[in-house]
Amino acid sequence: MNYINYLSIFFWVLITGLILYFAWRYRNGNKEVGPSHNTALEITWTVIPTILVISIFVWGFKTYMTLSRAPGDAMDVYVTGQKWSWSFEYPEHGVRTTNELVVPVNQPVRLVMQSSDVIHSMWLPAFRNKMDVLPGRTTTVWFEATEEGTFRFYCTEYCGDAHWNMKGDVKVVSAEAFHEWIEENSKEDTTTPLPELGAKLFQSKACFTCHTTDGTPSIGPTLKGVFGHTVELADGKTVEADEDYLRESILQPGAKIVKGFAPTMPSFQGQLSERELNGLIEYIKSLK
């Protein structure tokens, strides 16, 4: 990369320098007559750039091959891109996260990705790697973190309203901390009070991307004060927002669409335990 940068800067300074110098040196009134062509010179400045760009190509291709092929000992994490959040699943431990990828340091990680709706793209700027995430096809991208810390990842394929908010963090931790984290998260949380659990899930499942809790409509309707009220649906019917309605809206979002909103919400079927579901419902009930 530095090689290309220096080369580019060199040529830019050369061209700009020559243009400005000639413009000054041969300004208005020069009587000398320059040559109309010079075949040797022209061939030279065709051949030299050709050699230079081929060298850039070879370097780029070699590096690209290491970027696209994960080493054999890589840890797989399954990724689903959806409007507008990322879900991660650690296959051996049954742990799921949203918009947060926790990985051990010095361990190659391979993301096995697919999309449940439109094309997204997983960009890990700190690890200089990126791959599109397609519906109906699996793609992979890998990286190895060499230091602990928190690094952003982004969706870089435009995917609609909240494309800009489809981002999260890679948390690189020590191997021990990673195992502790896995331990903690593979157990079902049975102690946190329900509304608090719901509030946590509301953040970690990125519900806030589309639903506000302050009364302003966003991509989806606001959840403030929704419980117990009558909701007007897109097909003209109305429905009482009780526990059963909230439950259905989380598991089968397409069943009853609120008037004025597009049916874009993904289903959370299979991603929440009964207790977590109850937690979310309790949390929504608490938003008055």
Binding site: M1, I4, N5, L7, S8, F11, W12, I15, T16, V53, I56, F57, W59, G60, F61, K62, T63, Y64, L67, S121, W123, P125, R128, N129, K130, T156, E157
Partner: peptide, 22 residues
């Protein structure tokens, strides 16, 4: 010239992967 030269890192596979769609 700047536009052309900054195309080189985009044409090169390794750098494109990171710079694409930024």
């Amino acid at each position: 010239t700047i536009g052309g030269l900054t195309g080189l890192p985009l044409a090169s596979l390794a750098t494109n992967v990171s710079l694409h769609d930024t």
